[in-house]
Design a protein around this nucleic acid. Structure first.
Lengths: 158, 158
DNA sequence: GCTGAAATGCATTCATA
DNA sequence: TATGAATGCATTTCAGC
C-alpha cells in the first residue's frame, strides 16, 4: 500500500484547498483546529512533497466558448516503448487534448479532447490525430453534457 | 456559434490563471500589457460572469495515495428524465466519482472513478454502482498511467 | 510542533485623467 | 476605461513554550 505520510489534519487541509484555493490559511486553520502559522507550514510541506501540484483557475467550458468534449480511444499499431513515447509527446504538444490515460484492454489510450464545435473536432481529427505515425484506429464518443466535474479527490483515509 | 464577449486580453488572462492561480494581478497585467487595477477588474468580471468557476488546488493522485483511475461506462434500462435525474443525484453524492459525462451512442454515461486500489474499486462497484436502481450494465476500463492532465482549455480564439 | 504578535507584501479602492 | 497612490488584509517570520 502507498505510504503518504499524511495525517488526518493534512487530508482535511487538502480537502479544503481542493474546494477553494483562495481560503486564507487562518480560515483553513480554524477548520482543522490549528492557528495560521502551523497551518501554513503544513501547506508548504505538502507543496514541497509534490502532493499539491499547483493552484489553478477552473473555467466553465460552455461559458468559455468551448462546449464540446469528445472522448477518443486510440489503438496503436505497436506498443513498444518508443511508440508510446512518440504518442505521449504528440499528446503533450496539442492543447485540445486535455486528458490522456494509458489504458488496459484492447484500446491503448483514452483521450478527452475539448473543442468549440464538431467542425473543429473533425479538423483536429483529420489534421492531427489520424496523421500521427503508429495510430491504428480511433473511436470517438461525444459528450452531450458534463454531469459532474469534481476537483476533489476522495481523501477520506490514507 | 457561442458568443463569449471576451477579447484577446481576457483569453490571455484566463490562460495565465489556468496555469497558475497564484500569479499576482500585477504580473498577469504585465503579461497582457495592463497595470494591476484594470487587470483585476477584468478578472472580477470573468468571475462574475461565471467563466471562472473557482480556484482550486490540483493534487498528484499518486502522491495523495489514490493512484487508481477507472473509467466506467454505464447503460441505463430507461432514459426518461427521471431516470437520468436519479442517476445524476447518485453521482453527485459519491466522491469517488470525480467526472461524469452524459454520452451519445449506446452507453449512457462515462464515469471516472478514483480509488486507492482495485479492492476499493470492487467495493465501490458492488456496494454502490451495481445497487443503483435503473442501471442495466457497467463496463470498467482501468488506467495504467495518466499521460496528460491539463488544467488549461484551448482558448486560442473565440 | 504549536502559539501569538509584529512586519512584509500583495490586492483593492479611490481620486484623477 | 487606464493609472498610481493609499489603505487594508493575509501571509510569513520570529520569539517563546
Amino acid at each position: 500500500m502507498a505510504e503518504t505520510g499524511m495525517d488526518q489534519i493534512d487530508r482535511r487541509i487538502l480537502a479544503a484547498l481542493q474546494t477553494d484555493a483562495r481560503l486564507t490559511v487562518e480560515k483553513i486553520g480554524a477548520m482543522v483546529g490549528l492557528s495560521a502559522s502551523p497551518c501554513a507550514r503544513r501547506i508548504r510541506r505538502l507543496e514541497a512533497k509534490g502532493v499539491i501540484r499547483g493552484y489553478v483557475a477552473v473555467l466553465d467550458q460552455v461559458k468559455a466558448g468551448l462546449p464540446v468534449s469528445v472522448f477518443a480511444s486510440v489503438k496503436l499499431e505497436r506498443q513498444r516503448e518508443e511508440d508510446l513515447d512518440r504518442f505521449a509527446a504528440a499528446v503533450a504538444r496539442w492543447p485540445e487534448i486535455v486528458d490522456c490515460y494509458l489504458m488496459t484492454g484492447p484500446r491503448d489510450y483514452l483521450l478527452r479532447i475539448v473543442v468549440r464545435d464538431l467542425e473543429a473536432y473533425e479538423d483536429f481529427l483529420k489534421r492531427r490525430l489520424t496523421r500521427l505515425d503508429g495510430v491504428a484506429s480511433i473511436e470517438s464518443s461525444f459528450a452531450l453534457a458534463q454531469v459532474k466535474q469534481s476537483t476533489c479527490l476522495p481523501l477520506s483515509e490514507g
